[in-house]
Design a binder for these strands. Structure first.
Lengths: 368, 368
DNA sequence: TGACCGATTGCAAACGAATGCATTGACACC
DNA sequence: GGTGTCAATGCATTCGTTTGCAATCGGTCA
């Protein structure tokens, strides 16, 4: 089984030497503890001479200020809680990485909570005790009650990629409605006639908005969704959903999946289990424009959610809420583009180059 | 641009009501602060009657114990630092999610640090101040000096998917040497004759071990690596590396990529840029067995690194180090399997079914 | 020379909880 | 009734900082 190599090295011979405190440094440097504190506080009043002596002493004891004690007195932890789930969906790691970068730049650290999409959320109780200065809820599966409770507890919350009508919490999301309308329009313009939809989590705002945008546009144009199945935003769920859709007598010639993660699963099923040619036999479109959508094997047509912009907005709101300046809640919608690749049949015109990618910008108004 | 919907809702009318403390609760419940503390400490001595009164008061004030204050007095933060980089490589999110689950089960929270693989690492200084109880270094690009410094600071460190010869820090990794030997053997048995290698970060232990295992076995069998390029573990890097390899006059008929993330890039290049059939014209093998390796489009033959086992070992070591019982450093090697799929030509025999997957278990001894 | 000023520095009180120790009361037992 | 026991509770200290305030000191200016 597991190979175990005992390197033989022993830990510190000194048994349990507690970490040095500011007092220890003070004693060594022959100053008061306050002086030590000031020596480590930029802009504080210390004679350059003493500061140097203190720094030397600190280095000798390998002293590091205890941020926990500092948090206690300063009443700010410098920490932001990020709740996210299902890192298998590439969109989430992308968000996490971007968020991490942006928050670090703003001087904050991240306390990470991954939640099981299926389980309840007793996470919250813990999070609140941890004195995070704010919370980013990036999981599609969290109940809105959570957000409410936080708002009551007085801790700033931003919903990421998720909105909430009932709560007065801030949110940042992509343009789900416009994007999915655009997708419907794109597919119709491409000559498709039988429209399928693979839904994400039914009670998530993203799914509701994307489905609404898609369905509504179709209806307004005397078209409709002929096949629908629920993928719950998971790979396996989408796999099964696609299998179900493709097994029906009247298979759709276009399937819009509520996100790229599911679209990839759908694409795999169509090809590997049904031997379909995409987009020859069937067009598939996703939402998010994750990294893998660009991989040639998928070359997925998708409506983009610009992660960096969304994250920037999130951080802006967060900082405003923490500072207490912005008391009003904002609901931000970040626009995206329909990135045209090869997983869906193309409409005869309206495709334009935009830097590296092709986007669809129909000249006709969005609503016919 | 960004659409902004002001929901009009205003924040708490009460301006800055500080969170309730144990004192507030005590006053309301007519007890001492100690009693409140005890009421929230399982197993402490409180009359059931008083406890109930305290809990009620606490609920009314929506009091939550301040974990920062608790950390200070208890001398333990309940937090573990996880340093990781490049979440685009699916292996990393998989690790992160598993680690998060395991640490939560052990009662710890995660302070997440994502580091830019290219930048230096001033991260450490911050991390140490944050009083994490231990550190998991999951980034291939961190200098070993970092680990050393932590060890000196007396904070337990476990290297994840990374070993270190010079330092006396613990580590958990897959079986890089055995795995890559096995891959070499597998490719040779499959009748390949021209062997390529796409390297990860040159100074990373994983790359060194994987390359050594591969190269050594080939040499011992009068074979050799005819093409080598460096992909630095990035998608783009592997892309360019594969392009370079495929452009050579004597293209290899088998390419081992130091991880799956790069193997996918290589596969995409081979197909989309060179029109090659995999495995008809060229076999590709990876390392890690990430989720995407199972996707039919790739169906990547890969040596597995069992994330959950590795994480379990990591947590076990961590807890031992934190408890102070285990003073010795351990270097754990978690065994894997060569998961056989369709991205590489098969040897005539030795393939066995193992649950859902095929693995290669040659009857011949590993070393000829 | 004396008042005043600014830069340094130390003192001591926070921050919010945990906990050893002493105190209180109830109860049982002899 | 006196004494011992035990549970319940409060007091006061502690964790490692920050920071307002006061004290000190050297020097400047009138």
């Amino acid at each position: 089984m597991v190979k175990k190599t005992d390197t033989g090295a022993r830990a510190d011979p000194l048994p349990v030497r507690r970490a040095a405190t500011a007092y220890d440094v003070a004693k060594l440097a022959g100053v008061s503890q306050s002086a030590v504190s000031r020596a480590f506080t930029p802009g504080a009043s210390v004679a350059p001479e003493t500061r140097k002596r203190i720094i030397t002493a600190a280095k000798e004891l390998s002293y590091r200020p205890n941020l926990i004690a500092r948090s206690l007195i300063k009443q700010r932890s410098g920490t932001i809680g990020v709740v996210i789930s299902y890192l298998q969906n590439q969109f989430n790691p992308e968000v996490l990485e971007s968020l991490s970068r942006a928050l670090k730049a703003a001087g904050y650290n991240i306390l990470l909570f991954t939640v099981d999409p299926h389980s309840a959320d007793p996470v919250l109780e813990e999070v609140l005790q941890l004195q995070v200065e704010a919370l980013v809820l990036g999981s599609t599966s969290l109940s809105s009650a959570v957000a409410d409770e936080c708002a009551i507890a007085g801790i700033p919350v931003v919903l990421f990629n998720r909105t909430s009508a009932v709560n007065s919490v801030s949110s940042v999301a992509g343009d789900n409605v416009a994007g999915s309308r655009r997708i419907a329009q794109f597919l119709a313009a491409g000559g498709h006639r039988r429209f399928g939809y693979i839904a994400g989590l039914e009670n998530s705002s993203t799914n509701q908005e994307r489905e609404a945008g898609y369905t509504t546009w179709l209806q307004q144009n005397r078209l409709s969704v002929s096949s629908r199945a629920v993928g719950n935003y998971t790979f396996q769920g989408a796999w099964d959903a696609m299998r179900e859709i493709c097994s029906q007598p009247e298979r759709p010639d276009a399937v819009f999946c509520a996100n790229d993660h599911m679209a990839i699963a759908a694409l795999e099923v169509a090809r590997s289990e049904f031997g379909l040619d995409v987009p020859g036999d069937l067009s598939i479109v996703g939402f998010d424009d994750v990294g893998a959508a660009r991989w040639p094997s998928f070359s997925l047509t998708s409506f983009s959610q610009p992660v960096d912009v969304m994250v920037a907005e999130t951080v802006r709101i967060l900082l405003g809420l923490i500072g207490g300046e912005t008391a009003t809640r904002e609901a931000i919608t970040v626009p995206g583009h329909l990135i045209v690749r090869r997983s869906a049949r193309l409409p005869p015109h309206g495709i334009e180059r935009n830097g590296d990618v092709l986007v669809w910008c129909p000249s006709d108004p969005l609503v016919p």
